[in-house]
């Protein structure tokens, strides 16, 4: 059945470059118009998201010029995933020369079971079931900020599973690229300010948290006809993260096969960590089927709200708003 489906998809992809007739109900995919409607609803429901036009040179003509992609910025990410949970299957994603490279590949460790289609489908079912359960909890208001990652394992289990190797925390520019502080004084040339009793500085206030942050973007993937999530992160000092550092904040369970570092689809000059959308429609379909069984049909304009709740399982420590109700 799934072979048939994929064959059908291949043929359809060939004949219809841009999806025009809605196949939301049958395949949980979106036309560009439906993507825009879902985006409008998301912006209406949650004002931290907004439409952006992006770089005109990268404009897609099947989307309105001022509604090319959605973004939310400055989203906190307090902890690394390896601090929250340990996956036996977790492997360092290979990057070139000592970690400042950008290539993240599907890693299958030696001895790791080859993931077959069947177990993939099981995983999707698990994701969908877990998701619907969570959604029910959200709706009843028993938990306002669910999808918190599981608590840190007990010390004994932490010891049994050492944290990922150090080069996982890959590195910023070489130390000798950073001018020493004397240089900085030189560069500061003549600037002085008297102590200002009216100023509260983020660097010294104990009430202000220093944390990684992410800018998120939702783009429309014409090939898969689904939304696609892209991330770009900053460290505690607001300097850009490397690709390897960003991978620390993406769940290995769901994403170690499907994260790629790639140029932002709508902006020049930034490489983002993109969650590859090849299974998005499948998961969304399963989630929607489960919800329909539970008597809760998802409307097409609610697609992105459900999608963001689903994505929260992929980036569980990135603290964006995925708690909004469907209605």
């Amino acid at each position: 059945m799934s072979n048939l489906t994929s064959m059908f998809k291949g043929i359809r992809e060939y004949w219809t470059p841009v999806l025009t007739a809605s196949r939301f109900e049958t395949d949980a995919v979106l036309t560009p118009d439906e993507f825009v409607a879902a985006g409008d609803y998301l912006v209406f429901k949650c004002g931290t998201w907004r439409w952006e036009a992006g770089d005109p040179a990268k404009r897609r003509d099947y989307l309105p010029a001022d509604k090319q992609f959605l973004t939310t910025k400055n989203v906190p990410c307090l902890k690394r995933l390896h601090e929250m949970e340990y996956h036996a299957s977790e492997k360092t994603v290979e990057t070139d020369d000592g970690g400042d490279g950008w290539l993240a590949t599907h890693y299958k460790g030696e001895g790791a079971p080859d993931v077959s289609d069947d177990s993939d489908l099981d995983l999707l079912d698990d994701v969908a079931a877990e998701f619907v359960e969570k959604l029910t909890m959200d709706a009843t208001g028993t938990s306002s900020s669910t999808s918190k990652p599981p608590a840190r394992p007990a010390a004994s289990s932490a010891a049994a599973h050492p944290p990922p190797p150090a080069h996982h925390a890959a590195a910023a520019p070489e130390p000798d690229d950073i001018p020493d502080i004397d240089d900085m004084d030189d560069l500061a040339g003549g600037v002085s300010e008297a102590p200002d009793p009216a100023a509260v500085h983020a660097s010294t206030s104990t009430k202000i948290v220093r944390t990684r942050t992410y800018d998120l973007a939702i783009t429309y993937d014409k090939y898969y006809q689904t939304p696609k999530l892209a991330l770009f992160g900053y460290d505690e000092a607001r300097q850009p993260l490397t690709g390897a550092q960003m991978l620390q904040d993406i769940s290995q369970d769901h994403a170690n096969k499907t994260v790629t570092m790639e140029p932002h689809p709508h902006l020049a000059g930034v490489m983002v960590a993109a969650i590859h959308p090849c299974r998005h429609a499948e998961v969304m379909k399963r989630i929607m089927d489960k919800m329909r069984e539970g008597g809760k049909a998802v409307r097409v304009d609610q697609y992105l709200i459900v999608f963001l709740k689903f994505m929260a399982s992929v980036i569980p420590t990135i603290d964006y708003d995925h708690t909004m109700a469907l209605e």
């Binding site: 990057t95 290539l103 502080i181 002085s192 010294t204 850009p240």
Partner: peptide, 29 residues
């Protein structure tokens, strides 16, 4: 004036060679 993360009154520097250098991009691609 914005403070340097160290708290000093000083400018900052950012190195984006890993993202902008065509040669390094080609290597990592």
């Amino acid at each position: 004036w914005e403070r340097h993360p160290s708290g000093k009154l000083a400018p900052r520097v950012i190195d984006l060679s890993h993202m902008m250098d065509p040669q390094r991009l080609a290597e990592s691609a």
